[in-house]
Simulated scan of single mutants.
Amino acid sequence: MAAKPSQVPIHGRSALLEAVEDIVYGSTAGIVGKYIEYPFDTVKVRLQSQPDHLPLRYTGPLDCFKQSIRADGFLGLYRGISAPLFGAAAETSSLFFFERIGRELVYASGYFSRDRVLPLSALWFTGAFSGAFTSLVLTPIELVKCKIQVPTLTSTDGAAPKAPSITSVIRDVYKHEGIRGFWHGQMGTFLRESGGCAAWFGSKETTTKMFYILNERSATSQAEKDALATEALPLWQQAVAGASAGMSYNFLFFPADTVKSRMQTAPVGRTTQPRTFWQEGKALWNQHGLRGLYRGCGITVLRSAPSSAFIFIVFDGLKRYLPM
């Protein structure tokens, strides 16, 4: 069974060098993907974070785009991108790094030989393993990002509200909630990442395997079949595999991300006790039902297709053609 370049056993290479590649190339791929998806992510967060006790400010993604551009211009959709760029580098490199650790643990269990590629069931597990640990890295970064993306609606002195900066958000969170406050919404991130990354890696590998099988069946000779087993897939097939990964990741566990975004965009320093993950989810369900949990899902799935495709194309290309 063929697999992506990062999963082809490469003898004679140190684990440290492999880890460095995962971090460097994962960071590069994450930054590329973030520039593609960020405006759509801003709209998604604004749709998700609308208060449940007030009339909806946006009627849908297009209305949110129009209102946002009218208020802040197109560049306003990129507000606060510096933190997400760092977050994208940290997230994507962590995903590939922890996924490799997960594969090493599976090999160490003795169930599979190191000279063979892992089956799809094991790769779905290593994806979940990767997402669970990555969530610890990602929650503080996403908390700052979400608070910057959501526009301030009121101002205490009657003047035009000032958009929060990275430093002001960090200062306010630490002042009112301490270090622990940066992991507000961790349960939502954990559920989204562990389940979503199982689907992210698993869907990509499943689609990749399907294409290799189809390509092998179309081969006319054994030599052509042997060549196909070691060559990279055509670019369009890599893109489809990466796109399927992104759409699966975002759709399957989108409600957890919605609840997480609402928790992280709540004002800091309020007198009432912050809601837990389950309390926030229950309040949203009572107000808007299942539809409220999937608010912004369409645009999120749409933007995840090209973003995820580029991430895997860049990462796999760097791993294959620029090994360290």
Rank of each mutant, 00 (worst) to 15 (best):
M1C: 02
M1V: 04
P5V: 06
S6L: 12
V8F: 09
V8K: 03
V8W: 02
H11P: 11
H11D: 15
L16S: 06
L17W: 14
L17P: 01
L17S: 15
E21Y: 03
D22C: 05
I23M: 06
S27N: 05
V32K: 07
K34H: 08
I36D: 03
E37M: 14
P39Y: 00
F40D: 02
V45T: 06
Q50W: 06
Q50D: 02
Q50V: 08
P51S: 03
L54Q: 09
L62C: 05
C64E: 03
F65T: 10
A71M: 07
G73D: 07
G73S: 11
G73H: 10
L85Y: 01
L85K: 02
L85M: 11
A90C: 09
E91S: 02
S93L: 04
F96W: 09
F97D: 00
R100Q: 07
I101F: 12
I101Y: 09
V106E: 02
S113Y: 02
D115E: 10
P119Q: 02
L120W: 11
L120A: 03
A122L: 12
W124H: 08
G127F: 00
G127C: 01
G131L: 00
S135K: 10
V137D: 01
L138M: 11
L143M: 08
K147S: 15
Q149K: 10
L153I: 09
T154C: 05
S155E: 09
S155A: 13
T156W: 08
A159C: 10
A159Y: 05
A160E: 08
P161V: 09
K162H: 09
A163K: 07
A163D: 14
V173E: 12
V173A: 04
Y174R: 07
H176C: 09
I179G: 05
I179E: 11
I179A: 06
H184D: 07
Q186S: 04
Q186I: 08
G188C: 10
R192D: 12
S194I: 12
S194M: 15
S194Y: 11
C197H: 12
W200V: 03
F201M: 02
F201W: 08
S203G: 03
S203P: 01
E205D: 15
E205S: 11
E205I: 06
T208V: 10
T220N: 09
T220I: 02
E224C: 02
E224I: 01
K225C: 06
K225F: 02
K225S: 07
T230L: 05
L233R: 00
P234V: 01
L235F: 15
W236K: 00
Q238P: 00
A241W: 00
A241S: 13
G242P: 00
S244E: 00
Y249W: 15
F254M: 11
F254L: 14
P255A: 14
S261W: 07
R262N: 03
Q264K: 05
A266M: 03
V268N: 10
P274R: 13
R275K: 14
T276M: 02
F277E: 05
G281K: 04
L284I: 13
W285N: 07
N286K: 13
H288Q: 13
H288K: 14
V301C: 11
V301E: 03
L302P: 04
L302Y: 06
A305F: 15
A305E: 01
I313F: 07
G317N: 05
L318M: 10
R320G: 06
